[in-house]
Write a protein that binds this DNA or RNA. Structure first.
Length: 591
RNA sequence: GCGCCCGUAGCUCAAUCGGAUAGAGCAUCCGCCUUCUAAGCGGAUGGUUGCAGGUUCGAGUCCUGCCGGGCGCGCCA
């Protein structure tokens, strides 16, 4: 339960009472009323802006309205003090028991602590990765994979019905190019081509993909087909080789994703959509609404192609929905553009019942956002909406020096390389330590170092320390039930040190943080919050070194120790709950 | 030329639908280990939030115009 939402309800109850009493007019918009922790803890436990946002429409001065609210709020259960501050803030102090109850909630809920119902079971489609099935995943894909997966987990925790989806671009020129490169490797496996021949073909741009990851596939195909396609015309081998190459690449990608701990609910094939006539259907749907027409586009400014020729083409009226220009749906050879496939794809999502969609893309797709949002509006008659999270570049570093990427065709730093080197948990956490639209430095030396400025380690250290306290407690009181459920019954009111109260309030903020991060589609907030929890816990730990009375385990006072263990367990629980969103395993000890 | 993103302390970054005195870490300086992991903790120093206007009770956040950086701009995906 979000304790701040509970008190917001209390505030709104009192606002309603003022309306009933005639102090406030009917029909006030209370959506901007917020109850939140004050930035400065000395102001109290909770603050509300209610008086300031309601004063104007009510024709009152903020402070006057605040005074009226304060009178009423002082009677609310759990509120021990209320006062007006600054321009009209209302600061509330709560009975410590309110916060202690939050800790009890956390202990009883375990990793489910922070689960929320704000999603109301609403279906959300999170599309991410969607890398072309033409080769292994590289580090650039890793960020999108982790951001998408964590965002999905976050939304799931917030009560949305989430589908993780991968769009497979298995139609179009890219996969034909893949088939040609695969055919060359197949001929190589049959001894018809040498490595030098392949290099020469690459240089002449006869083939596009030179990576040696196609070598084993070539060998497999040589076994399957013998020399049947070795000298056959392309028309004969293109389709069968393409099919096998796509399947093989997709299997490789799924493997790479599994190494990162990412799995999808749905893979949607572009080829299947086209084959099922979904593009034609979608075009007909839009045509019926007057959104498809034949027209001539202006040449793009600043980058006029040499061979630009104005010509009439089939266009989608994207400008009707806020895009800059209308977008072509057919290439000059009459085939669909990639965009046409995407129109059908997003219509398909709408047909499957999704009105909330999120796409996680690389920053190089920035120019694509508006037209996709236009399409989503158009194919859903305005019901559905699309949020696009653009992930900026990951800069790979080692001790501050850029990691050199080989220019040789087909070689790059793969996702697998990075996971093998630092482990999936480190990759996942670090990828979530920046908001998606900021570039991210990934320094191999830094992310594996054990120090304060490595957030993964710092958070894990806090969890391990918490576990360590329990190890000692079991030695002190063998056989004692130290389960979270048992600790929830401990005399928590013994937790009266200000430092302890601060940590409890922080933990009580976890449900609120989950909801805020989910609504904003910002999983990185969890990383900062966890670092804050870890810092608070490390601080508490050190307090126990300075002042023996503040140690978690007091051998002479079992009841107090149990109460403090409850707090320690609360910290561990919240960290575990947060790491679960990230798909990171909390560690019980560090070596 | 146009569109999108970014610009916060020396460095890397936070800042809760617009909230109160803009916060952390690193670096620099000063403290804290017979005691639950000092791989840690506490304190100090450090700011015209790129610039100039505007909106309002209140702006890092919203609007306009500049400056600087990144990405993108028909028949690629």
């Amino acid at each position: 339960m979000n304790i701040f939402t509970a008190y917001r309800d209390h505030v709104l109850d009192q606002v309603a009472a003022l309306v009933a009493a005639g102090t406030l007019p009917e029909g006030l918009d209370t959506s901007r009323v917020a109850v939140e922790p004050p930035r400065d803890p000395s102001h109290g436990d909770m603050a509300t802006n209610a008086a300031m946002v309601l004063a104007k429409p009510a024709g009152l001065k903020p402070r006057d309205l605040a005074e009226r609210l304060v009178e009423r709020l002082s009677g609310v259960a759990g509120v021990t003090a209320v006062e007006v501050a600054g321009p009209g803030f209302i600061n509330m102090r709560l009975d410590p028991a309110v916060w202690l109850e939050c800790l009890r909630d956390a202990l009883r809920a375990g990793e489910r602590y922070g689960d929320s119902g704000i999603g109301g079971g609403r279906k959300v489609n999170v599309e991410f990765v969607s890398a072309n099935p033409t080769g292994p995943m590289h580090v650039g894909h890793a960020r999108g994979a982790v951001v998408g997966d964590a965002l999905a987990a976050l939304l799931d925790k917030a009560g949305f019905a989430v589908t993780r989806e991968y769009y497979v671009n298995d139609a179009g020129a890219q996969v034909d190019a893949l088939a040609r490169a695969t055919h060359a490797r197949y001929r190589q496996a049959l001894g018809r081509l040498s490595e030098d021949d392949i290099a020469a073909m690459l240089a002449r741009k006869e083939i596009e993909y030179g990576g040696d990851y196609l070598v084993p596939l070539g060998e497999t195909l040589a076994t399957e087909f013998g020399d049947r396609f070795a000298d056959a015309p392309e028309a004969e081998w293109l389709a069968p080789i393409r099919d096998r190459a796509i399947a093989a690449m997709l299997a490789m990608i799924k493997d790479d994703l599994a190494a990162l701990g990412v799995a999808f609910d749905t893979f949607t094939s572009e080829r299947d959509l086209v084959g099922a006539g979904r593009v034609d259907e979608t075009l007909a749907f839009l045509e019926a609404r007057g959104l498809i027409y034949t027209g001539v586009l202006e040449p793009p400014k600043g980058k006029a192609p040499e061979d630009w020729e104005p010509r009439p083409q089939t266009l989608f009226k994207a400008t009707e929905f806020g895009d800059d220009v209308d977008r072509p749906v057919r290439k000059s050879d009459g085939s669909w553009t990639y965009f046409a496939g995407d129109m059908a794809y997003h219509r398909d999502k709408v047909d499957r019942g999704f009105e909330d969609m999120i796409n996680v893309f690389g920053a190089d797709h920035g120019g694509y956002v508006k037209r996709l949002q236009a399409v989503v509006k158009a194919v859903s008659d305005g019901r559905a909406s699309l949020d696009v999270k653009l992930c900026q570049l990951v800069k790979l570093l080692d001790r501050g020096e850029p990691v050199k990427m080989s220019k040789r065709a087909g070689t790059f730093v793969t996702l697998r390389d990075v996971v093998d080197r630092v482990g999936k948990d480190v990759v996942r956490f670090i990828m979530l330590t920046r908001k998606n639209d900021a570039t991210l430095d990934f320094d191999f030396a830094k992310v594996t170092e054990q120090s304060r400025d490595n957030p993964v380690w710092y958070v894990q250290y806090a969890h391990a320390r918490a576990c360590s306290v329990f190890g000692h407690a079991e030695e002190l009181w063998p056989g004692r039930d130290l389960s979270p459920a048992a600790l929830a019954e401990a005399p928590l009111d013994r937790l009266d040190a200000p430092e302890e109260r601060d940590v409890i309030r922080l933990l009580a903020g976890w449900p609120r943080l989950v909801e805020g991060a989910a609504e904003a589609h910002e999983p990185h907030r969890v990383a900062y919050y966890l670092a804050e929890v870890a810092a608070a816990f490390h601080g508490l730990w050190t307090k126990g070194k300075d002042d023996a009375q503040l140690r978690f385990l007091m051998p002479d006072d079992e009841a107090l120790s149990l109460a403090r263990l409850a707090l320690v367990q609360g910290v561990a629980t919240v960290i575990a709950s947060g790491l679960q969103i990230f798909g990171v395993q909390p560690v019980r000890e560090l070596r």
